[in-house]
């Protein structure tokens, strides 16, 4: 696994997050609880996928952090 694979996974997770948000909104708008609440559950899982990878995509460079502290 490498940075490229991570980016690819991240793209798919973003698509899922967007789809989950849309399904949730559509479920609410059309009085369709089965859609709204299952989408909420899906989004909870999507956020765990994000915790598992997305934080890695914007790493804080320790050097940059030091520079910020001493500026």
């Amino acid at each position: 696994m490498n940075e490229k694979a991570l980016m690819e996974i991240s793209e798919q997770v973003k698509i899922l997050h967007h789809a989950g948000d849309q399904l949730c909104a559509l479920g609410e708008a059309h009085d369709f609880p089965a859609m709204e609440y299952n989408a909420k559950r899906l989004l909870a899982v999507v956020e765990i996928l994000e915790i598992n990878i997305s934080d890695l995509l914007e790493p804080i460079d320790p050097g940059e952090q030091d520079a910020a502290e001493h500026s």
């Binding site: 696994m1 598992n52 790493p59 804080i60 320790p62 952090q65």
Partner: peptide
């Protein structure tokens, strides 16, 4: 379970912890 996180080099892990 998560090959990215569990093998992060220590300095990257520390940076991730600080950010989180």
């Amino acid at each position: 379970w998560n090959p990215f996180l569990e093998t992060l080099p220590p300095e990257k892990l520390a940076a991730l912890q600080l950010k989180k």
